[in-house]
Nucleic acid binder design. Structure first.
Lengths: 231, 231
DNA sequence: CCCATGACTGTTGTGCACAACACCCCATTC
DNA sequence: GAATGGGGTGTTGTGCACAACAGTCATGGG
């Protein structure tokens, strides 16, 4: 009888424990990825707990997951520090991403439907606007949306989770390089736009393998450009 | 000056916080994989905390990681339950393992040295003994050792971690099938022995790619046999 | 002036008490 | 007899207080 409370005063009350946990996890992960919390930054458990309206205990559960994912590191007596994104350490992650990104076409591939192609159209239009007057921050946020969107191309959940974890480990390094003027921004934007158009072309032919190879190739080339510029 | 305590009363005192955490994590994970905690079993936080000589708080940190890895699931008011190993849900994990197992040869491959080949010899001798009078439990424990050992063939840490996580998600399903007489045990043992000999042959030729493909093929075939038997 | 030392401050780690919740059992009622 | 309601019990989730620890700054002695 008490399965659903009547007239919940706050919509947040309906969220389960795990939902609120995921919400905090995604929020903090996004801030780290967008360099709102740059490498080396100290995250205050007390402040974050207050911000999310909870105590340290549930928040520490979230930080623990972020630590297992390699985004933060808790040091006793010092603080919870955002790990630094060093390209030499992330080279292995990039190489793994290149290989894994080719797999959605082979492991439970999902052919896109009309709604998917429609949304892809919208993304392509948005990317065209970014080329002219986009900031690195805006672009990265956009890239995150596109990434999540393209994950739908596979129904293999473990693969999706692995790709997601690796993505968030590497993306902030690109953003850092872009902000610090290490990259040819307009060039990067153009390449991304072309990638989306190429993806559209491949998907219209129902060639998921081609689409996956395109993404894989672009990750590889993106890393090459990064590595050349910031040594 | 106080960097190292004098005359530690207990060697465990020297272990860092993270070391003790990892020790608990590996211990519980092994028990789950060896079906000492079968699917559906309730893990008592209080009992486990007492056993490891700590309180619930650090132990919950470990259970949280196991939950993120998909081995247990905590339900409020009920308990921490070992997830069930269903072959239909694990099919995606198996398929991903097949693909990932081929990668060590391409991502930072490490050629085995003499000590490695020596240890491989020992493993092959041990596997020969298991064929005649081995139990499923003994075999799985042995398989875990061999798996960890073969991870040395790549220096790509993210790949190793991913392979490890996926391994522990699937292996207990094989053990369950073996215990419940769903498999031709001697046949399985023989196949594993042959796999190790084939690996030895490939590694003697310094052909890491061949070695990786052999492992990949065996995971694929092992899943096929499992799937046929337990539907 | 320089260095050592110790108190102070702020952080994460731990333990504990209680809240929130689910399940079981049994009495009660129709 | 069957359904229902309520209390009891055991579990995980949360909040809080304190321990353990690292860094900083001031102070005193050389």
């Amino acid at each position: 009888m008490t399965s659903k409370p009547l007239l919940p005063s706050d919509p947040a009350d309906q969220l389960s424990v795990q939902d609120r946990r995921d919400a905090m996890h995604h929020a903090i992960r996004k801030r780290i990825c967008l360099l709102e919390y740059p490498p080396g930054a100290r995250l205050s458990e007390t402040e974050l707990a207050q911000e999310f309206g909870t105590s340290r205990t549930p928040l520490r559960r979230v930080l623990a997951r972020l630590e297992d994912e390699g985004l933060v590191q808790s040091v006793h007596g010092v603080g919870t520090l955002v790990t630094d994104a060093d390209i030499h350490e992330l080279e292995h992650v990039y190489q793994l991403r290149v290989e894994l990104t080719a797999l959605p076409a082979r492991l439970d591939p999902r052919l896109p439907d009309a709604a998917f192609m429609q949304k892809l159209d919208n993304f392509i239009m948005q990317s065209a606007k970014i080329i002219d007057h986009g900031t690195p921050l805006e672009f990265t946020e956009f890239d995150m949306d596109v990434f999540q969107f393209l994950l739908q191309l596979t129904g293999n959940a473990p693969l999706r989770e692995t790709l997601e974890r690796l993505y968030y480990q590497t993306k902030r390094l690109w953003l850092w390089a872009a902000i610090n003027a290490k990259l040819d921004l307009v060039g990067e934007f153009r390449i991304f736009h072309h990638e989306l158009e190429a993806l559209q072309h491949a998907l219209r032919s129902h060639d998921l393998d081609a689409a996956a190879r395109i993404q894989s190739a672009h990750i590889s080339m993106s890393f090459k450009r990064l590595f050349q510029k910031i040594k």
